[in-house]
Computed example of a mutant assay.
Amino acid sequence: MSATQNKVICVKTVGMDSRKQAVFRMAFKMHTMQRYELAEDAIGMKPDLAIVDMDCVDGNLLWENHGSENPDLPTLIVSMISLPDAPVPVLVKPVRIETLFPLLRQVLSERTTPGRQNPPQSPPQSPPLQVVQNAQPELASQPVPSSVNAPSSQPAMQKMPEQVGRFDPTRGLLGTLQEILQAKRPSMVMIANQNSLIVFPEQERVMVLQDLTQLKNACENEGVIITTRALQKEDKPDNRNIVVSNFVGLLWQVAIWTSRGRLPDGIPVHAPVKLKYWPNLTRMAPIPNALRMAAFLVRSPSSLPVAVRMLNVPPANLFDFLSAAYSIGLLDVIESRREAAETPPVEPVLVKDEAKGGMLSRLLRRIVGL
C-alpha cells in the first residue's frame, strides 16, 4: 500500500501519552489531501504504520517489544536527537508538518519495518576535557591555528538564478481546475480517460477518485490528456473509497506539483508582488519557509530578487509559494510597475556631435554675413 491511496491510514503510537498524541491528532486533521487517524480513534482498524517515541521512559525496551510484536509493520521513530544507526526513518523533534507527512509517505512506500533488530543507539558523547596541570606556559600562549576554529553557522546567501523557469498556469490540470472555478459548474475531471475528480466549485469541495500519485504525475507530465464533462446523476462514487478535500487546498497542492521551482507566466520577476491577506497555511500543503514568506509579503510589496535577498530562502521555495498563492487568487501583482517590468527599456536616441557642429557652423556663418 502506498501513502497516497484513497483510504484512511491508521497510525499506531508507541510510548506516547495523551499530550503527545494530541500533537499528531491535530496534524492529521490539518492534512486534507490524505486521511490519517490514530489507532485510538479508528476503533477496529488494523494499523498501517507505527510511530515510536524513543524519548519516553524505557524507550529501548518499548522498541524491542514493538519489533518483536510487529516485525513487519512500517515504523517511524521520533526523537529529540538524531539516531544515525536507526533501522527506520527518524523524525527529529519538534514535529513539523512539512517534514512529518513526507516521512510518513516514505515509510509506507519503502515499507521500512523494525524487524527484530537492536534499538537505535544515541550518538556517543564527546569525552570531557582534561586540564593538564603541568602544561608549559609558552604552549598555552601560542595562538590557535585558524584551521581548528569552529565552522561558521551563518547560512549561505541565496541568489536569484540567471534563468527563471516558466510554466503556463492555464494548461494542464491546474488550468482545468481554474476553468471549472470560473464557470462555477459541477464537473467531472478525467485524466487519461479515467474519472479522477468530482468538483463542486460553489461549495469549494472536491472528491478525489484516483490515487494522489496519479494526480501528481499528471501535473508533472504535460502530455497527459485531461478532459472535463458536466456532472451526471449516475456519478455517485462509493464514499468509502474516496477522499473529500477542500477545493482551495487542492488548487494549492496542484500548483506546487505544477510549479516544481518555476514561476507562472503571470508573475514578472522584477514587478512588486504582495499577498492580499494572510493565508490559512494550516489547511494547505506545506512549503518550506512558507510562514516567513507569508509574513514578509503580507506587509508590503516586494520584487522577487529583494524577497530572496531579504529572506535568504531558496528561490525554488519562493517560486512554489508564489505559484500556489497565485493559483488561489491570493497574490497581487502591482499593476503600476507591471508594464515597466515587462517592457524592455528603450535606448535613447543620441544626437551626433557632428550634426551639432554643422548646425552651429551654419549659424555662425549667417551671423558673420549680416
Rank of each mutant, 00 (worst) to 15 (best):
P89F: 09
H66C: 02
N70K: 13
Q130W: 08
K20N: 09
I51M: 05
E40V: 13
G172D: 03
L73I: 09
R19N: 13
L250G: 05
L91A: 02
S18F: 08
N221H: 13
I81C: 06
N70A: 07
A39E: 13
Y326C: 09
I198K: 01
R185D: 15
M33N: 12
K7W: 04
M157Y: 10
P102M: 01
T258N: 04
A316K: 14
E339R: 01
V349D: 06
E162K: 14
L212M: 14
M54T: 14
E347S: 10
M45L: 13
T282V: 06
F247W: 08
L103I: 07
A285P: 03
V95P: 00
P71N: 07
G165S: 06
L209D: 08
M188D: 04
G44H: 12
L61A: 12
P143W: 10
P272D: 00
V95K: 02
N241P: 01
A230F: 10
G369P: 03
R366H: 07
W278S: 10
D53T: 03
Q136T: 10
F200Q: 08
I226F: 07
P145A: 02
Q154N: 14
A27Q: 04
F167S: 00
L322A: 03
Y36N: 02
V243T: 14
V308G: 01
R283Y: 04
D55M: 05
S126W: 14
S141G: 07
E335L: 01
C10T: 12
E202P: 05
K274E: 01
T213P: 05
P120H: 14
R365W: 07
V248C: 06
T99V: 10
P155G: 02
M310N: 14
E202C: 06
N134V: 09
V349C: 07
M30N: 12
P74E: 00
H66P: 01
W63G: 01
M293W: 12
A324F: 07
P127T: 02
L38N: 08
R260C: 11
F28G: 04
L331D: 00
N217F: 15
F167G: 00
G357N: 10
Y277F: 08
D320T: 03
P114H: 02
R366S: 10
E138Q: 13
V90Q: 04
L129Q: 15
S152L: 13
P89K: 01
M359E: 12
S303Q: 09
V368K: 15
I97C: 10
G175Y: 11
S109F: 10
A255F: 02
P264H: 04
V148Y: 06
E354Y: 08
V164C: 04
F200P: 09
L212D: 13
P127A: 00
R166G: 02
G223S: 15
L275D: 00
A307N: 11
R96Q: 11
A135D: 12
P264Y: 04
S82P: 05
N246F: 03
Q214H: 14
P114E: 00
I334N: 00
Q142G: 07
N217E: 15
L350Y: 11
L360T: 09
K29V: 11
R262Q: 12
K356W: 12
L139P: 05
A294R: 05
G266T: 10
